[in-house]
Computed example of a mutant assay.
Amino acid sequence: MTSSDAPSPAEERRRRVGRAAVFALVTAAVLFGVGGLVRSRWDPLISFDDDAVGTLVGITVDNPWLLDAAHVWELVTQPFLLHTLGTLLCLWAWLRRGMRTRAWWAFGTLMASWVVGLGAKYVFQRARPVIEDPVSEAPGYSFPSGHALNSAAFATTVVILLWPLVTRRLLRGVLVAAAVVLVAVTMADRMFLGVHYPSDVTVGVVTGAGLALASFAGFVGWSPRRPEVVDDPDATPSSTREESDGGPVDDASTARPRQHRES
């Protein structure tokens, strides 16, 4: 590609905004579309949700070990704990691997998803499932599921954050599989405990993952003002320095202090 073929900064900015807008609009359509059905108490959805939760809670009642496991999973996947772990991973990626812009992107995405999840609950104000023989209780509103939304946002963001550092195909597969398991088990956990409906957890996952993907779509191609000090290939033009977070970065090279001329 010649220099004349390269897109201008304004064109690249429009492309980034357009990509992000597409993901954001699809995510919002699912959230508000299903949320509207919930608020209007659309009978097919409400009946399906009630029947599904009643069946799953019945399975939990018949299997005490499942109840114990579900309570443990509920505890370790609290949004606060997930985002604390995500913040620590962002700090590690920045300070140990030199991935400054990517780490800031990941941190901002995690915080934004947390806020959106909390705000959405107050917009729709759906009551928790009413179970004849409840096995667990949870405060607050039901739609969308905070555990599901934040686990999906966490999993998607962490996979994207660590992707350049995991160069082996097998390890990348393990990373993606672990993310899928985290989200899937969290979805099941909320329903087996009877604190969320299927629509709560499904929309929560779509919203969390959609927010992370929309954020990343807007991040890819971002060009900072001083590209010489940025280590992210997704945010750095090809003319910047070779050492980037597009692959494993040598700790020794990133930790080497700059030499200053004494005056």
Rank of each mutant, 00 (worst) to 15 (best):
F107Q: 06
F107K: 04
G108V: 12
L110Y: 08
M111D: 03
A112M: 10
W114A: 01
V115M: 07
V115N: 07
G117F: 05
A120R: 06
Y122R: 09
V123M: 04
F124R: 07
F124A: 01
Q125E: 15
R128T: 03
V130E: 14
I131S: 03
E132D: 15
E132L: 14
D133H: 08
A138P: 12
A138W: 09
G140Q: 07
Y141V: 06
F143Y: 15
G146N: 03
A148E: 07
L149V: 09
L149A: 03
N150K: 11
F154V: 01
F154N: 04
T156Q: 09
T157S: 11
V158H: 02
L162C: 12
L162P: 02
P164F: 04
L165N: 01
V166S: 06
V166W: 05
V166Y: 04
R169E: 05
R169C: 00
R172F: 03
R172G: 06
G173F: 14
V174Q: 01
A177V: 13
A178E: 06
A179E: 06
A188G: 13
D189T: 13
D189F: 13
D189C: 14
G194R: 02
Y197E: 04
Y197I: 03
G204H: 09
V205R: 10
V206K: 10
G208H: 11
A209R: 13
